[in-house]
């Protein structure tokens, strides 16, 4: 995709998250906790043409490198996404996100009656990633499930 088509300039340093399924960019923004009040540039492109996906979303974030925790969470809402680490206007690293087998301590179990939601217990929520047509998370303790659409509501 050319710059002309996107009408967004290259970033000098930071991260480009490409091949986000159309409509999921705002979920990714929520995962990253971006409110717009940060003092770095964020470009969100939604529903742009993509050979691979038909339509896709894309996010460019200036001066921010994602943490492994963030990449894991993004992989759940955008399992096809690619992450580009930009340094001095060049792509220094590029990798495809792969949803992990298990998410530990990052997402709360949606079941209020689950032991993992009891305040005084030294237990981290562990959700198994069930990969099908859509990603579903399943609490290994109580069996409650969470769809990828609901994930952003339960991030710890």
């Amino acid at each position: 995709m050319s710059e002309k088509e996107l009408k967004v300039t290259k970033i000098e340093n930071g991260t480009v998250i490409d091949h986000i399924p159309a409509g999921k960019a705002l979920d990714v923004i929520r995962i990253l906790g971006i409110t717009g009040k940060e003092n770095y540039t964020v470009a969100i492109l939604m529903n742009v043409e993509s050979k691979k996906l038909g339509k896709k979303d894309l996010i460019k974030i200036e001066n921010r490198v994602l943490e492994p925790r963030e990449a894991k969470l993004i992989s759940l809402v955008a399992p096809e996404a690619t992450l580009n680490v930009i340094s001095n206007f060049e792509v220094k690293e590029k990798y495809k996100l792969e949803p992990p087998e298990m998410i530990e301590g990052l997402i709360k179990c949606p079941n209020e009656l689950c032991i993992t939601n009891k305040q005084d217990e030294p237990i981290l929520p562990k959700l198994k990633v069930v990969k099908g047509l859509k990603i579903v998370l399943e609490c290994i303790y109580c069996g409650a499930t969470l769809t990828s659409e609901e994930i952003t509501k339960f991030i710890l």
């Binding site: 079941n111 032991i115 009891k118 290994i140 409650a144």
Partner: peptide, 10 residues
Amino acid sequence: RHKLEGVSRY
């Protein structure tokens, strides 16, 4: 036995 779910697996 517990009213909370997931206790026995934990």
